[in-house]
Amino acid sequence: MVGLGAAILPDYEGSDDYSVSPIPAAIGRVSGFNFMLAGNRLSVDLIPDNFGPGIDFQAGPVAALNLNRASTKGIDDDRIKALGKRKAAIELGGYLGIAKTGVITSEFDRVSFSASYRKGVTGAHSAGIFTPTVSYLTPLSTKSIVSVFVSAERAERGYARSYFGINPQQSEDSGLPVFNARGGWKNWTLGGAGAVSLTGDLRNGLQAFGGVVYRRMLNDFAQSPVTRIAGDRDQWLGSVGLAYSF
C-alpha cells in the first residue's frame, strides 16, 4: 500500500499552534520481509514470516527524519522563533517486537508489542530516544479496517537540551525564562486510525484513510517554557489521505 495524506500537526513539539503538512505512507512485504513508512519514520522487519494466525517475531532497523524547529517559517509564536532554528536530525536505530495474529475478532486481527531505540547521528542532537508501543488492529470486513495504539517516548538529556532547554542568550532574545532541561520520559501517546476501500476491497484498489492522535507531554518536556508558557502539554494530531493497494 502506498499513500499520501495531509496532517494537522503542532508547529513544533510542544506548540499550541497548528499547521497542515503532507505525509507519505507505505506498508508492504517483499520476499517475506515487511516494511513500513509512516510520515517521517521507516522500519523494516528482517525476520520473514508467513500470512495467517500465529506468532510473529520482529526485529530490524528503524530510521527517522526529525524536522522539529528545522525552519521557523511555519511557527506562529515569535518567542519560539527567537530561540533560533535547529538542524534537521537523522535518527537511526533498531527495534524488537512480537505480534500475534488471530486473537479476538477473527483469524486476521493482530495485537503487537514493540520497543525501539534510535539515536541522533547528525543534526540537532546526538541523543537516544526509547519508544515502547502496544497496538491492536482488526479488519471489520474486506472493505474496512481499524487500529488503536498506545506508546511512550523516553529521550536522553541531549534531546531535551536541544529542543526544550533555554540558555541565557536565548532567554534574552525570546523573553522566555532560562531552563535547564534534563532527559526522561517525554510523552505518552494514544491514537487510532482506519481505512475504507473506495473500490470494493482493501487488498487491491483505492482507499481512504484517516487517524487521530492525542499526546501528553511529561516532566521537563512539559515544564519547559517552550511548552508551559509558549505552548501546551496537550498535543493533537490528525490526518486524512488516499492510498492504493496492490
Score class of each variant (00 low, 15 high):
122 T>I: 08
213 V>Q: 11
107 E>A: 15
191 G>V: 04
190 L>C: 06
198 L>W: 05
67 L>P: 02
235 Q>K: 01
37 L>S: 09
2 V>R: 12
18 Y>T: 08
135 S>P: 05
36 M>E: 14
203 R>N: 14
216 R>W: 02
215 R>V: 08
38 A>D: 11
94 G>K: 06
233 R>M: 01
224 S>Q: 01
53 P>K: 12
123 G>E: 03
136 Y>W: 08
115 A>P: 13
140 L>M: 09
153 E>I: 00
212 V>M: 12
76 D>H: 14
3 G>Q: 02
25 A>I: 13
110 R>P: 13
139 P>D: 04
169 Q>G: 12
110 R>M: 14
48 P>H: 06
225 P>H: 09
61 P>S: 10
228 R>G: 13
170 Q>A: 14
243 A>L: 01
66 N>S: 15
116 S>E: 13
219 N>A: 14
51 F>S: 14
72 T>H: 15
213 V>Y: 04
197 S>N: 04
14 G>R: 13
161 R>W: 03
83 L>C: 03
66 N>F: 13
53 P>Q: 11
60 G>A: 12
165 G>M: 01
14 G>H: 12
130 F>R: 12
191 G>R: 01
45 D>A: 04
201 D>M: 05
38 A>I: 09
108 F>K: 15
171 S>V: 03
35 F>R: 05
161 R>A: 13
150 V>H: 13
211 G>F: 03
95 Y>W: 10
84 G>R: 07
150 V>S: 15
71 S>G: 08
38 A>V: 10
206 L>M: 08
111 V>Q: 10
244 Y>G: 02
222 A>I: 06
228 R>L: 14
111 V>F: 06
244 Y>M: 05
55 I>F: 15
165 G>E: 03
79 R>Y: 06
123 G>M: 02
18 Y>S: 05
24 P>R: 03
196 V>Q: 09
197 S>Q: 05
